[in-house]
């Protein structure tokens, strides 16, 4: 196995998580990841040293999601994807708060949610996240801001902008 393949293999857990949060279906998510891996190997020559591997892989995955997998999204399978951790969050009130945050996240429009997950969860830069979603950085920031504002309002019990 080449160094590149080893590097890609190390990204599989991140790809699976993102695919699962997009599709909310484990089998469909693994199909999407497998599809992504096969395509990544075929296009490896286009990924040079200046390209960060994770955003590059995520871009392939998201492109495949949009073009062929979005119809498999399980709208009602919210909690399956985001079960709260059983350890690491000691206080019950914290767990409740996180549950509320998770619920509020799923109420967001998809474009805002995926932007939040890329930046807030994956820790990507705005430029990287924008490249994954194939949108300008300004659009990414706008989605991020609206998503965060909606989250805050929902957590405060106020009405947020309607889901699109």
């Amino acid at each position: 196995m080449s160094n590149a393949q080893q590097a890609i293999e190390a990204e599989i857990p991140y790809l699976r998580r993102y695919a699962l949060l997009l599709l909310r279906d484990r089998d469909a998510a693994d199909d999407l990841v497998q599809d992504t891996l096969e395509r990544a190997l075929l296009r490896l020559h286009t990924c040079n040293e200046q390209v960060r591997l994770r955003p590059w892989l995520f871009a392939i995955l998201y492109n495949r999601f949009v073009s062929d997998y979005r119809k498999r999204v399980r709208e009602n399978a919210v909690t399956e994807a985001g079960d709260l951790p059983e350890t690491g969050v000691a206080a019950q009130e914290d767990r409740v708060a996180l549950r509320e945050l998770e619920r509020a996240l799923w109420q967001l429009p998809e474009d805002q949610r995926v932007a939040l997950l890329l930046v807030g969860m994956e820790g990507m830069s705005y430029e990287e996240a924008a490249s994954v979603l194939d949108v300008p950085v300004g659009t990414l920031r706008s989605r991020l801001s609206r998503g965060r504002r909606s989250l805050r309002l929902r957590l405060e019990g106020q009405s947020a902008e309607p889901r699109v």
Binding site: Q5, I12, P13, D30, M121
Partner: peptide, 30 residues
């Protein structure tokens, strides 16, 4: 919010990877 996303979905990173995904990196593409 950022920390919450990590806390909520962090454990998804520790689930076992299905063999078929690792195998996808070892075999010739279809």
């Amino acid at each position: 919010q950022n920390a919450g996303l990590h806390a909520i979905f962090g454990k998804l990173l520790h689930q076992p990877v299905p063999p078929r995904l690792r195998a996808a990196l070892h075999r010739e593409p279809s």
